[in-house]
Design a protein around this nucleic acid. Structure first.
Lengths: 207, 207
DNA sequence: TCGGTCACTTACCATATGGTAGACAGATCC
DNA sequence: GGATCTGTCTACCATATGGTAAGTGACCGA
């Protein structure tokens, strides 16, 4: 029995730990399938502690969405801000998405979960990510104008890149279902194939 | 109040209607988030009728998986059996996947749901689809041997194709979240872009 | 030292869930 | 016409769920 009262401040705060565990659970098991009880048990805390920080499960979801959108945006904004232009810069961003997928798969998992969650949640997420999408679109458009890339609708292009990466996540799941745990080597090779696929589809001879 | 006793035999049988509704619900809302009550209500039937045909929710899931695997395999085996070789035949199969995604999105949605469902369910599905995967792998390998396609590990190649299509499904969801209902025109154009992407990545000059 | 706040607890509650037991009505077979 | 089988129903149950109310102890400022 853990005593009541103010806890020892070891590492992450309770609300942060809740957010993190909720993100993982929502992204892997799904929002509706995640129970507050199970969440609390994993955190070695009572369910009411969760409801103290986030007055309802829906509010918790919104907080998870906002938090994730910020983290996602920060990670990608950083790579978007790197120097360079043309394909090199696109490749840098895509590689950072790969890194993000390896380091925080829950983040991309949550994005995938968006389709399942209703319009309100999806809208909230999209709104939070909108600035990032706009920046990326503008960059792509500039590159097309400069003749470095084939002309595409930039939003669709982003979606193509995004869905390719999401697809790679799914691939890993399917491989596991086939009982073949992908090796680090094979994953790296696969990434390079995907990059080559994107490059050949996007870049002009001048790029 | 619908009377008890034997129902009128109008169209699909009850068990088929249950299977179909369950597939849709499992694929869109997820297995755990789908309640038997809600399912029954949609079918204008009591929950116990579902439990009469499928003695537990888990058995229902297994039936849905088996049923879907058969339908999926049938649709793709048919297109695999078409004449032709090289890229033309690959394109025929991919196009049939696109058609399937348009006609029965639940089927591909269930495949995507597999990652969430535990190992038993995923194993069951993979086992049921295994012959199809083997056939497709053999075809791809033969094409590579004949020099029509660049050399890849055929399973990874299938996964690439699969994840590209799954990705396109996700794209539509994201577009909708952005409030942009994709038009039939834009979807067709997108499909052609994806086919071109695959072609350029797979086919050799001799293909 | 003492009241207040903060972080977390126990004690409940209404509802929804998957599942069981058994009644009941129509069809079928003898 | 009665027994039986089939498909659906009503009645019920144990458990799990999201959420409310109220308590408890540690810490803090006056």
């Amino acid at each position: 029995m853990r005593p009541a009262g103010r806890p020892v401040a070891d590492g992450a705060s309770t609300s942060e730990r809740i957010l993190d565990a909720a993100l993982t659970s929502f992204a892997t098991r799904g929002y509706e399938a995640s129970s507050l009880d199970a969440l609390a048990q994993g955190l070695e805390v009572r369910k009411q502690t969760i409801l103290y920080w986030f007055p309802s499960k829906e509010v918790l979801l919104e907080a998870v969405i906002d938090h994730s959108a910020v983290e996602l945006s920060a990670a990608l904004e950083a790579s978007l801000a790197t120097a360079g232009s043309g394909w090199a810069r696109v490749e840098a961003v895509v590689r950072s998405v790969f890194r993000l997928a390896a380091r925080r798969p829950e983040l991309l998992g949550l994005v995938r979960e968006m389709g399942r969650l209703g319009t309100p949640a999806a809208t909230r997420f999209v709104t939070a990510v909108e600035p990032l999408v706009t920046r990326a679109s503008e960059f792509l458009e500039a590159e097309m104008d400069a003749g470095h890339m084939r002309r595409h609708e930039p939003r669709l292009l982003l979606l193509a890149i995004y869905s390719t990466v999401i697809g790679m996540l799914t691939e890993v799941e399917v491989l596991r279902a086939f009982g073949e745990e992908p090796t680090a080597r094979s994953l790296v090779r696969r990434r390079n194939e995907i990059l080559e696929l994107l490059r050949s589809a996007l870049v002009t001879d001048a790029g």
